[in-house]
Design a protein around this nucleic acid. Sequence first.
RNA 1: GCGGAUGUAGUGAAGGGGUUAUCACCUGAGGUUUCCAACCUCAUGUCACGGGUUCAAAUCCCGUCGUCCGCACCA
Length: 572
Amino acid sequence: MSDKHARLERLTSMLRRRGVILPAFEIHGGVAGLFDFGPVGGRLRRRLNNSWLEHWASHGDIVEIDSPTITPEAVLIASGHVGEFNDFMSECNACGGAFRSDHLAEGHHPNPDVLSQEELDQILHNNSIACPTCGGGDWKAARPMNLMFDTRIGAMKGGRAAYMRPETAQGMFMLFPALYRHFRNRLPFGAVQTGKGYRNEISPRQGMIRLREFNMAELEYFIDPEVEPAHDFSKWESIQFNLIPDPEFNQPMSIDPGSASAENIIRHPTVAWFMARTWDFLVSVGINPEMIRFRQHEGTEMAHYASDCWDAEIHGSYGWIECVGIAHRGCYDLAAHESATGDGNLRAWRPYSEPRTVDKTVLAGKGSIIGPAFRDQAGAVNDALQSIDEMPTGFPFELTLESGDSVTIEADMVEEKRIQTTEHGEWFLPHVVEPAFGIDRILWHIIDHSYVETEKGGEPYTVLRLPASIAAIDIAILPLMEKDGMGEVASHIHHQICAAPNLASYYDGSGSIGRRYARADEIGVPWAVTIDHESLQNGSVTIRRRDDGEQIRIQPDELVDALVSGAVTSLF
RNA sequence: GCGGAUGUAGUGAAGGGGUUAUCACCUGAGGUUUCCAACCUCAUGUCACGGGUUCAAAUCCCGUCGUCCGCACCA
C-alpha cells in the first residue's frame, strides 16, 4: 500500500515537474478539483480527444456538434438536473456530521426525495431521528446543496437563471431536430460532443478523479425501439470482457460481448455494441485491457434518466474507477423536453410496412339544423358527434356533451358519412443509448498504466510508454553535439517535422545524449532522432525506439513520411 | 461540513527569534566529453496569505486560504 502510495507521489511529482498536469491557480493558493494541463499535458489531452472523435466518426452515422456550457435553468429543470442535483443536507449540532436529509427521513415517509426543506425538518424533529455518528437528535435546518454552478444570463437583475452544464448530453437533445434533418429523417444516428462539464463537488479528492471542471465526451445514439438492432459481434468473439452484473441477477463473469447480449445479461444489443466499441477505444489509447471491467448499475443507484447502465471501470492507483457510463436512457430526455416545451419536433417518423387504411362511419352534424336548434351549444354538439365511438342504434338518441349536458339528437340533424383515412406511419420518441466518457479519468489511467519505473545501470529510470498515437510529442531531435554543423542539420529536421500537419517534435541540444534520451522517455516521446558525424557525410540519421532503445539509420525524408502515416514501427 | 496532519526554489527534503535560509536533483551558461541521466566552474530560483507579539518573525501567537488523510457526501 505504501509502495503504491510512494509510486503515486513520484508520478504526480513528475507530472508537475514536466508540465503535464499541475494544480491550477497555484500562485493564488490553488483550488481543489481544478487542474491545468501544461505544455505536455495540453497536447496529450488534445490527442486523446481527437482519438475519441475519430473513433466514433469512423462509424459513418455519428456527427460532432458543439453547444454552450451556459445552460438556461428551464433546460435543466426539464432534464431533471435541477431537482435531482438539489439535495438537502442536515447537519448535527452535536457532532457536526452532515447527511442527506432525505436519507435520514427514510422509513418515515414513502418518498422523502420530494419533500421540501420544512417538511424534512419536521420529520427529523417529530420522529427524533438520531444522528448516525453520535446518536444526537438536534439538527440544524436542512440546507439545499446543489452540485451545479449557478449563474445568470444578463447583467441586470432581470437576468435569466442559468447553470454551467453538468453534462454535455443536453446539447445533443436540444439539437435533435437539426440532427434528424441532417440524417434525412432516418434512424439510427448519433451525435458526439466533447467539452467541459461542471460540478461543484463538496469535496474533490483523488487528484484527477473527481474534478469541479472536467472534460467530458458524450455520445447520444438515437434508435427506433421497435427495430431489432443487428450488430455484428464477431470481431470480439474471442475476447472475454469482465462483467459484474447487478448481483440481484448474476454473478461476475468473463464473457464475450456477443454472448452477453444473446444471453440478455446486457439487456440491449446496442448497449452491448457500445460497450464493445468502448473497450476498443480504451485499449487503442493505451489502457491495459486486463484493467478494464464493466459493472452494471443496481436498480437503486441508477441515475434518474437511465433504464440500464453499465460503467466501464478502470483499475489504477486509486482502485477501480468509473471512467465511462453506458446508459440506455430510453426516451426519457426527449419526452421530458417535449412535455416541458410542447415542441413537436423531437419525434421521428416510423413508416408502416403497409399503409393502414381505416374505414370509419361517422355522424356529421348538419349545420343548418344543429345551429338553430342548439345555438351556443352547437359547437359542443358537433364535437361530441365526431367523437362518438359506436353508432347509435336508432333515432332519437341522447348525446352527452363534454360539459356533462345531455342533448337529444333527431335523425334529420345528422347524416352518416363514410370516411376513409390512410395512415402511412406514426411519430414516435426515439430511444437513446448514451456512452459518456470522463476524459480526464481516462487520461489519468493512460498515464498511470504507461508509467513504468525500471532501472538503468543501477539507477532508477522511468518511461512513459504511451501509444505513439496520443503521445504529446512525436519525436525528439537530438544533435549528438552542437558543433560541426550537427546543430543546424538537427534544427532543419525539427522545423521540417513541426511543419507537417499534426506532428510535433522538440529539439534538445543540452546535456549528454543519455540525459536527453532519459528526458524524452520520461514524458513518453516514442521516437528520438540523433544527428551524428555520419549524418554530415551522407544525410542519414539514427532513429531510436523508446521502448527498447533500438536504433536504425534512415534518411530524414523517409522518416517524415513514416511519421505522417504513423508507420515508423514498420521501419524496424 | 467535521476531526487530524500539513504548507520552505521546478521536484523532493533539512532547518529555524538575529540581519547572507541549507542540501540533493532539476533548469540555464561556459568548458570538457560524446549514442543511453559522466565531469568541472558559474548562475537563476524558495519560507502560502493577512494580522499580532518583538528592537528584530521564515521561526512564536491568531485568523484566512490551500493541500493531504479519515468520516460524511458523490453523474
